[in-house]
Design a binder for these strands. Structure first.
Length: 557
RNA sequence: UGGCCGAUGGUGUAAUGGUAACACAGGACAUUUUGGUUGUCUUAUUCAGGGUUCGAGUCCUUGUCGGCCAACCA
């Protein structure tokens, strides 16, 4: 992209805000963002949108980005997730300036809380969870004040300190902010700041018996780090008033929160809870199952970081709810791989073709380009023999009009080799075609074709004699419906039972070299990626995406 | 029936008071030794009514529709 084109692309609303802040010299023109995952699950494509936004915004305006783990709830969080998150962010191509943890601030946060108590803005409440919920009121009715709301500063300080010491049972007391029990915004009705939990924390161990809530951790963490623009999703809009209340009362660095609409995508689910369920209930084979919308799933499926970044760029950023067509993601990976993936020929559903006029035992070496989009990728050798496999669907005994493939009396080119004509069809007792007999045109070899014959169709093929069997995993969308979450009943009822088909394909010899995570275009079949479990003795390929298929559309009409 | 956020082609995103743009998807044609790629063309009176204005997708107002908010989750 030239600078001129870049300049012409209009800014999204967050870029406008940051650009104006920089122009006005807010915070001395400094921009610091943060990506704040909770380490309780794997990152998905929706997080990728947030990552691209946070890191992209900072980079564009000369700033930097912190990676901060929002680890304030020890019962759901784990270091396993910390590691996967770091790996995924790096794989996407981003580097943080600081690796931080909300738990690093537990001491400071405790001090902040006592400040609020001293100011008469926080109190220890002995009510039970049920009582607190009942006193909260409803969106249309104001709440009622807790009987513990007006304890003295001294008593609150004492009780809070004893909560920290672990003197009280879990759930017996909480620390609440004293805001406004009648506020129309429910989050302002004396929100909880701290709860008692005797849980082991993945970083602070057993040091703490009390843990801060999101609302008393996130904004303060932003402020401590000097985050200038704290970007989150729409559901946090009602939290913003509280975010600002704490910063105001504590008189700390004024980070600002901005909200954008999270990514939703067709034929999948995006909530961590639902993804966890798919994993736990074995509907998929783990977080990195290639059908999952997780970063690790997409990676295993064969997606490239560049394609995912391009996708995030194309979907844009706004504040309205959206449901992005998964077809756009597929477009992005096809566009990337079309330019870079080496071509190989693999027959997924073999039909034997005997070239009756080709000498038995003979081999004709064909030199075929590795990538027509990139001639620097060179060529490879493919041995042509008397017996080859073609795709079963590439032959029809009684073809419809406009069928350019093999049929009795019809001619096609075998890619990079010869033109062949179908002379005979061999069938078994069930009337199933078992073999097709052809003759080849000796003077039609690719590169020095003097036959003068032009054929409409070119088929991929593989030599049958020393065919290389490979395992192929054909992935399809995980759900049968566009938006499983909005359907009646349990979203799992809409799982696509055919989302994975495992077959054996027959490959040309050059594929033998494939290493795990190598990506290829299997000619006319799609993009495939050697699976993590693939070995030289047992090659396994995951289908990343099919090719566009205009014939399938035409035939389906 | 409280508060907040939003509404532009099938899907997304733009147009920042001056006559709806771009991408994907869909359709048509051309090119092609991948029915791939590529190229050209094509698909909208901006949720509805009222108002301000010479002029409104944009501002005001009312309504409609959608989303979010009453976890000791984040």
């Amino acid at each position: 992209m030239t600078t001129e084109e870049k300049k012409e692309k209009s800014l999204n609303f967050l870029e406008e805000i940051v650009e104006e802040d920089v122009r006005e010299g807010k915070h001395g023109g400094r921009v610091l963002t943060r990506f704040p995952p909770e380490p309780n699950g794997y990152l998905h494509i929706g997080h990728a949108k947030s990552i691209c936004l946070n890191f992209g915004l900072a980079k564009k305006y000369g700033g930097a980005t912190n990676l901060r783990f929002d680890d304030t709830n020890p019962v759901t969080e784990d270091t396993e997730y910390v590691e996967s998150i770091k790996q995924d962010v790096r794989w996407l191509g981003f580097e943080w300036i600081n690796e931080l943890y909300a738990s690093d601030y537990f001491d400071t946060l405790y001090e902040f809380a006592t400040q609020l108590i001293r100011k008469g803005l926080a109190y220890v409440d002995d009510s039970s969870a049920e009582e607190i919920a009942a006193m909260k009121g409803t969106p249309t009715e104001p709440g009622t004040e807790s009987p513990y709301r007006n304890r003295s500063v001294e008593e609150n300080l004492d009780l809070f300190e004893r909560m920290r010491q672990g003197e009280f049972a879990e759930g017996s007391r909480v620390l609440r902010a004293k805001v406004d029990m009648a506020a129309p915004n429910m989050h302002l009705r004396d929100p909880l700041m701290y709860r008692i939990k005797f849980a082991h924390h993945h970083r602070t161990g057993d040091k703490w018996k009390i843990y801060p809530m999101y609302d008393f951790a996130h904004g303060q963490s932003d402020s401590i780090e000097g985050i200038t623009h704290s970007i989150c999703t729409l559901e946090f809009i009602p939290h913003r008033a509280l975010y600002e209340w704490f910063i105001d009362k504590l008189e700390i660095f004024p980070s600002r929160q901005y909200e954008f609409a999270r990514l939703n995508m067709t034929y999948t689910v995006m909530s961590k809870r639902k993804l966890l369920q798919l994993v736990n209930e074995k509907h998929v084979n783990g977080w990195d199952d290639p059908r999952m919308p997780t970063i690790s799933g997409l990676r295993r499926r064969g997606y490239t970081p560049a394609a995912i970044r391009d996708f995030c760029d194309r979907i844009g950023v706004a504040k309205r709810e959206n449901l992005i067509d998964v077809g756009l993601l597929e477009f992005c990976i096809r566009e990337d791989l079309n330019k870079t993936a080496l071509r190989r020929m693999v027959v997924l559903d073999p039909l034997k073709v005997v070239i009756t006029n080709f000498p038995e035992g003979a081999t004709e070496i064909c030199h075929i380009e590795n990538n027509p989009e990139d001639l620097d990728a060179g060529t490879r050798e493919v041995p042509f023999t008397r017996e080859v496999f073609i795709e079963r669907e590439d032959f029809m005994e009684n073809p419809p009009k406009k069928y350019f493939r093999l049929a009795p009396g019809q001619m096609v080119r075998l890619k990079g080799a010869f033109i062949v004509r179908c002379d005979d069809v061999i069938k078994d007792e069930n009337d199933e075609v078992t073999e097709v007999h052809c003759t080849y045109l000796e003077n039609s070899k690719s590169g020095n074709d003097t036959s003068g014959i032009n054929v409409k169709g070119t088929l991929h093929w593989a030599p049958a004699t020393n065919a290389l069997p490979v395992e192929i995993r054909l992935y399809d969308r995980l759900f049968r419906v566009e938006d499983p979450s909005s359907e009646e009943g349990d979203f799992k009822e809409y799982i696509n039972p055919d989302s994975l088909k495992v077959i054996t394909g027959y490959a040309e010899p050059a594929l033998r070299e494939a290493q795990a995570s190598d990506r290829f275009q299997f000619l006319r079949k799609g993009y495939f990626c050697a699976d993590l479990d693939s070995t030289p003795d047992r090659l396994i390929f995951n289908r990343t995406a099919t090719l566009r298929d205009n014939w399938a559309k035409e035939a389906g009409k």
